[in-house]
């Protein structure tokens, strides 16, 4: 499905509003000034997702995901290169991690990333759902770490042969004097993407 310039701008604007809300919440939670922006949005068929994400297919990627259902159904995923996510978590919760043994570090990183991802995904989805007048129910978040093809394969297992599309939002997260580039991916069936874009068209016509 192709988006014209106006639709892409509208979607990017929605994502920016959602993620700036997430940034405000994260700033309060972590006592640090956090900024989040979405400079680019793309809609691609499932087969091209791995390529479109512009991530090294062999590198480890930390992913937080939440399924959503309602008028549109699918999975929202927030991806960061593992090394970047670890550095980010260390920078943000460093003082508490100094006391902890090496074995517990992994658990702490997962837990912290899962909460940060949960806030970002929820805030982003809430704004998109509100603006488009959609009711969306979300699942509890999950965490995965692995290379990109494995992660995509695992998330696609639930979709049982349905034709899928992905809305990719390239995100920039500035925190603890660092800048981390992430990707928020909404993996949905073609029908669900259609429902979402119909609502987007109505919103744009209303403007």
């Amino acid at each position: 499905m192709e988006l014209d310039e106006l639709e892409r701008d509208a979607l990017r604007e929605l994502a920016n509003i959602g993620l700036s809300r997430a940034a405000t919440q994260l700033s309060e939670l972590l006592n640090d000034h956090i900024e989040m922006t979405v400079p680019l949005v793309q809609v691609v068929p499932y087969g091209q997702v791995t390529q479109a994400l512009q991530l090294d297919p062999h590198a480890m990627v930390a992913t937080v995901w939440q399924s959503f259902s309602g008028q549109s159904e699918g999975t929202s995923m927030l991806m960061f290169p593992s090394e970047d996510s670890k550095r980010l978590v260390h920078a943000l919760v460093g003082p508490s991690m100094r006391e902890v043994g090496e074995d517990d570090l992994r658990g702490i990183e997962h837990e912290a990333m899962m909460e940060i991802g949960n806030i970002i995904i929820t805030s982003g989805m809430a704004v998109i759902a509100d603006m488009l007048g959609q009711e969306v129910q979300m699942s509890l978040p999950g965490y995965m770490e692995g290379n990109l093809p494995d992660i995509m394969e695992q998330r696609n297992r639930d979709n049982a042969g349905r034709e899928m599309q992905a809305i990719i939002m390239f995100t920039q997260l500035k925190a603890a004097q660092r800048e981390v580039e992430g990707r928020m991916v909404m993996l949905m069936s073609v029908d669900s993407v259609q429902v979402l874009f119909d609502r987007l068209h109505k919103l744009l016509r209303g403007l």
């Binding site: 809430a126 759902a129 979300m138």
Partner: peptide, 15 residues
């Protein structure tokens, strides 16, 4: 977020 947007939330001990 949970009540308005039906979105479950995790609150970790770490943070």
């Amino acid at each position: 977020l949970c009540i308005k947007h039906k979105s479950p939330q995790l609150i970790s001990q770490t943070l």
